[in-house]
Amino acid sequence: MFEVEDALNKFETSILKSIDKENMKKILIFLKEQQVDYIEDILNEYIDLFLIDYKDFIKRIEKLNQKYEGQFWVKAKENASLLEELLYEI
């Protein structure tokens, strides 16, 4: 479940206000299509992922899937720090 109070305590208000609903919707649909089964965790801990413009998000996933042999989402589930790579192209 998405923990609203936690999110308000954790993330800067300016971050939460900056999330574009339409962009977030597209990314959520994409995550479901990719069969990511930890979307709630992403919302609770990595809501800033939704700040990435959708088209840019797809490009970053393609790059990361090349790096992780198509297993980015599986590996990120085991090691959450990989989600930082999605955010900041570390």
């Binding site: 305590n9 954790k10 993330f11 800067e12 971050i15 800033d48 930082e84 955010l87 900041y88 570390i90």
Partner: peptide, 12 residues
């Protein structure tokens, strides 16, 4: 020191 520090409240 990564851009994540701008996302999370200082308190956290």
């Amino acid at each position: 020191l990564t851009p994540t520090i701008f996302v999370i409240k200082t308190d956290y």
